[in-house]
Amino acid sequence: MGDCAVQNRIRRLRFDHGEMTQQALADRIGVTRQTVNAIELGKYSPSLEVAFRIARVFGVPLEDVFQFQEQP
Protein backbone atom coordinates (compact mmCIF):
# COMPACT_ATOMS: atom_id res chain seq x y z
CA MET A 1 0.00 0.00 0.00
CA GLY A 2 1.30 3.46 -0.89
CA ASP A 3 1.28 6.67 1.13
CA CYS A 4 -2.14 8.07 1.97
CA ALA A 5 -3.18 11.70 1.75
CA VAL A 6 -6.30 13.42 2.99
CA GLN A 7 -7.26 16.49 1.01
CA ASN A 8 -9.98 18.95 1.89
CA ARG A 9 -12.21 21.69 0.49
CA ILE A 10 -12.42 23.81 3.63
CA ARG A 11 -11.11 26.96 1.95
CA ARG A 12 -13.75 26.67 -0.79
CA LEU A 13 -16.52 25.89 1.73
CA ARG A 14 -15.56 28.89 3.86
CA PHE A 15 -15.73 31.07 0.76
CA ASP A 16 -19.17 29.66 -0.11
CA HIS A 17 -20.40 30.43 3.41
CA GLY A 18 -19.97 34.18 3.18
CA GLU A 19 -16.16 34.14 3.38
CA MET A 20 -16.28 32.65 6.87
CA THR A 21 -13.03 33.40 8.69
CA GLN A 22 -10.74 30.68 10.05
CA GLN A 23 -11.35 32.11 13.52
CA ALA A 24 -15.15 31.84 13.12
CA LEU A 25 -14.84 28.22 12.00
CA ALA A 26 -12.37 27.49 14.80
CA ASP A 27 -14.78 28.92 17.39
CA ARG A 28 -17.63 26.76 16.11
CA ILE A 29 -15.65 23.49 16.14
CA GLY A 30 -13.73 24.16 19.35
CA VAL A 31 -10.13 24.38 18.14
CA THR A 32 -7.63 27.21 17.64
CA ARG A 33 -7.40 29.25 14.44
CA GLN A 34 -3.90 27.82 13.90
CA THR A 35 -5.35 24.30 13.94
CA VAL A 36 -7.95 25.22 11.31
CA ASN A 37 -5.14 26.70 9.20
CA ALA A 38 -3.06 23.52 9.58
CA ILE A 39 -6.04 21.35 8.56
CA GLU A 40 -6.81 23.59 5.60
CA LEU A 41 -3.21 23.42 4.37
CA GLY A 42 -3.26 19.62 4.67
CA LYS A 43 -0.48 19.65 7.27
CA TYR A 44 -2.64 18.15 10.00
CA SER A 45 -5.31 15.46 9.67
CA PRO A 46 -8.03 16.11 12.25
CA SER A 47 -9.73 13.49 14.39
CA LEU A 48 -13.02 12.05 13.18
CA GLU A 49 -14.85 14.13 15.78
CA VAL A 50 -13.43 17.42 14.50
CA ALA A 51 -13.92 16.32 10.87
CA PHE A 52 -17.63 15.65 11.54
CA ARG A 53 -17.97 18.99 13.35
CA ILE A 54 -16.51 20.82 10.32
CA ALA A 55 -18.91 19.01 7.97
CA ARG A 56 -21.83 19.90 10.26
CA VAL A 57 -20.89 23.60 10.29
CA PHE A 58 -21.03 23.67 6.49
CA GLY A 59 -24.11 21.43 6.38
CA VAL A 60 -22.54 18.93 3.99
CA PRO A 61 -21.56 15.23 4.20
CA LEU A 62 -18.06 14.41 5.41
CA GLU A 63 -17.01 13.30 1.91
CA ASP A 64 -17.71 16.80 0.59
CA VAL A 65 -15.17 18.23 3.02
CA PHE A 66 -12.45 15.56 3.07
CA GLN A 67 -11.27 13.34 0.25
CA PHE A 68 -9.03 10.36 0.74
CA GLN A 69 -6.47 9.91 -2.02
CA GLU A 70 -4.18 6.92 -2.13
CA GLN A 71 -0.84 7.80 -3.65
CA PRO A 72 1.30 5.23 -5.49
Binding site: G30, V31, T32, Q34, T35, A38, P46, S47, V50
Partner: peptide, 11 residues
Protein backbone atom coordinates in the same frame (compact mmCIF):
# COMPACT_ATOMS: atom_id res chain seq x y z
CA UNK B 1 -10.22 34.03 25.20
CA UNK B 2 -7.39 31.80 23.89
CA UNK B 3 -5.83 31.70 27.35
CA UNK B 4 -9.06 30.40 28.89
CA UNK B 5 -9.71 27.81 26.15
CA UNK B 6 -8.55 24.24 26.83
CA UNK B 7 -5.85 22.74 24.61
CA UNK B 8 -7.24 21.40 21.36
CA UNK B 9 -6.32 18.02 19.85
CA UNK B 10 -3.43 19.36 17.73
CA UNK B 11 -1.88 21.12 20.73
Amino acid sequence: RDARAPKDERE
